[in-house]
Design a protein around this nucleic acid. Structure first.
Length: 569
RNA sequence: UGUCCCGUUGUGUAAUGGCAGCACAGGUGGUUUUGGUCCAUCUAGUCGAGGUUCGAAUCCUUGCGGGACAACCA
């Protein structure tokens, strides 16, 4: 049976949508759907987060529901305001709008404290005086059950008093913790009396000096979901083993209360992995701190801000998130898919311009010395509404050095001695001579043009093998171009047990070339403007580019079946 | 030698007991004033073994393989 295209477009088939549909069918949560994106503000967002953002906000859009932005800020040692700002900027840039103001787990510290007292009163939590080492030792291993703490059976009164004094700052860091009393023999390590609160004498980016005890992730996350009325708490697979604890804490805080309308539920999916890069915030931070890259937004980084500076568009990243899908099995996505997505988007949007990256002079010997003609050329053959513009042509031009060969092979369609080639939007020319310098390097190419072959004239219809891009020497201007290659040479740089991921850094990941010749139109280009440099690739003005000197970042090359084939030989 | 999760073309993802499909990557041909785009076309897959069933990628058993879990991180 044929399905309507619009329906097909809107059809979401991943298992999370199926779970939500089921919940809705069962009339769970009174028919409400509310998701959340819960980053810890301890680093910049990367493409893996983009997958999660598109999933959570995409669900909200699909069900005509909402999605919260909540900062999971329970550890003042690692977190910072800078990250809070960058995360908001990146989510907005991707095109999503969260419900109301951003939320913070730290907004709920009072309520979390009250619930902790409730657990103590119900005999479900206790203060442990042991050191981190001792607690770790008692915890056992995945195959060996843990041992109960000697402080496990303190009275409610003592626990209450000690917890109060912990809160009041009477103890040093590490001296005491609040632990849930569950089961030290549980096959699930997370159920072996997990720590709920620890002492940290450090001001928090939001709550300042109000607290010196901070809740752990497991004790804070589910309760924050519950407070906000989140219906589906979607996270990555490594939290799967936390789910029983997530539910246990909710059961405890709800103990004795009426059944709430909304009972949040955790669903896990497989995180995104991209080949030839690393995705852990810790490793990305290391690249930043060691100065291996130019900050979190270095165009080689898989961060949202890096991709933005590289020239990726929000649409391309959303398309990518759609194409990688959502499932539970481990995956490694080929960066070629990301590259496909940005080409796809920029092909439709980017203005075609002429830029010669590695220039060599081409002299049209039979063209008048002081003449200049302004040739009309389409701004984008994919989109007529983008119009046309005029580009200057004159006697002396620059073309790409590798568009000429002294002794070309048969399949080479470009310029060579006595060969004919078309100059895009201008004339058909024929190479008559070439001059080399003392080192044998091509210095200048001479050609004649056929005045009857100007673009648009009947003679211009003549078939010629190749078409070259070019700029007029006296009209063009110079700019720098930054060429990027993958940051790592190994498909899985952090997939080797005994080798540090930095061993695989690609020394050629950045090439800066100056003296590139650009057509005059480009003088007005602004930071983050996207262009297609004809026959080369997509380029974007660097965000650090200023009025004095333009810097272009290579976003991605055009598909190139010529170099692919010629490399095979 | 624990618990949990996962195995579908090279990669990713559909099919939820009824024709194994889609996308990327790769190959070939065509169109083209970008060796781009576009169009056509090809290559290639259900981890193994049993079982249930008229019928299994799908359900069951079992084997094998991969992953997660032992921070006072999230």
């Amino acid at each position: 049976m044929e399905k309507d295209d619009a329906v097909k477009e809107n059809e979401k088939t991943n298992f999370i949508y199926q779970e939500i549909d089921k919940d809705l069918l069962d009339n769970k949560n009174k028919g409400v759907v509310l998701t959340r994106f819960p980053p810890e503000p301890n680093g910049y967002l990367h493409i893996g987060h983009a997958k999660s953002i598109c999933l959570n906000f995409g669900i909200a859009q699909h069900y005509n529901a909402g999605c919260n932005l909540r900062f999971d800020d329970t550890n003042p040692i690692k977190e910072d305001e800078e990250y809070v700002d960058s995360i908001q900027e990146d989510v907005k840039w991707l095109g999503f709008k969260w419900v109301g103001e951003p939320k913070y787990a730290s907004d709920y510290f009072d309520q979390l404290y009250l619930w902790a007292v409730k657990l103590i009163k119900n005999g479900k939590a206790y203060i442990d005086d042991q050191s981190a080492d001792e607690i770790a030792k008692q915890k056992g291993t995945p195959t060996v059950p843990g041992v109960e703490s000697q402080f496990r059976n303190r009275s409610v009164e003592v626990n209450l008093d000690l917890f109060e004094r912990m809160k009041n700052g009477e103890f040093k860091e590490g001296e005491k913790v609040l632990r849930a009393k569950i089961d030290m023999a549980s096959p699930n390590m997370h159920m072996r009396d997990p720590i709920m609160y620890r002492i940290i004498h450090k001001p928090h980016h939001r709550s300042g000096n109000k607290w010196c005890i901070y809740p752990m992730y497991d004790y804070a996350h589910g309760q924050s979901d519950f407070i906000e009325g989140i219906t589906h708490s979607i996270c990555t697979l490594e939290f799967e083993v936390h789910r029983p604890l997530y539910n246990w804490f909710l059961d405890q805080i709800l103990e004795g209360d009426p059944i709430p309308d909304v009972r949040t539920r955790q669903i896990e999916f497989a995180r995104l992995n991209l080949n030839y890069t690393v995705m852990s915030k810790r490793k990305l931070l290391e690249l930043v701190q060691k100065g291996i890259v130019d900050g979190w937004n270095d165009p080689r980084m898989p961060t949202i801000s890096g991709l933005r500076r590289r020239g990726y568009t929000p649409e391309s990243i959303r398309m990518f998130a759609e194409k990688v899908g959502v499932a539970k099995r481990d995956n490694v996505i080929d960066v070629a898919l990301l590259e496909f997505c940005i080409r796809e988007d920029l092909n439709k949007k980017a203005m075609r311009v002429n830029a010669v990256l590695d220039p060599v002079k081409l002299v049209i010997t039979n063209y008048p010395d002081d003449m200049a003609e302004w040739m009309e050329t389409p701004n984008n053959p994919e989109d007529e509404t983008m119009g046309t513009r005029k580009i200057p042509f004159s006697k002396e031009l620059f073309i790409e050095r590798d568009d000429f060969m002294e002794d070309p092979p048969k399949k080479y369609f470009r310029l060579g001695p006595d060969r004919e080639v078309r100059l895009k939007s201008a004339y058909i020319i024929k190479c008559t001579n070439y001059i080399k310098d003392a080192d044998g390097r091509i210095k200048e190419i001479h050609a004649t043009y056929d005045a009857e072959t100007r673009s648009g004239m009947p003679q211009s219809q003549r078939k010629v093998k190749g078409t070259l891009h070019w700029v007029s020497a006296k009209h063009c201007f110079e700019a720098d171009v930054q060429l990027y290659d993958r940051l790592f040479m190994d498909p899985e740089p952090d997939g080797h047990k005994d080798i540090d991921f930095k061993e695989f850094l690609n020394p050629q990941s950045l090439t800066v070339i100056s003296g590139c010749k650009l057509e005059p139109f480009l003088k007005d280009a602004k930071p983050l403007d996207h262009f297609q440099f004809q026959r080369i690739g997509y380029f974007t003005v660097d965000s650090k580019s200023d009025g004095k000197k333009l810097i272009f970042n290579k976003t991605v090359g055009l598909k190139d079946s010529w170099s692919k084939n010629s490399q095979k030989e």
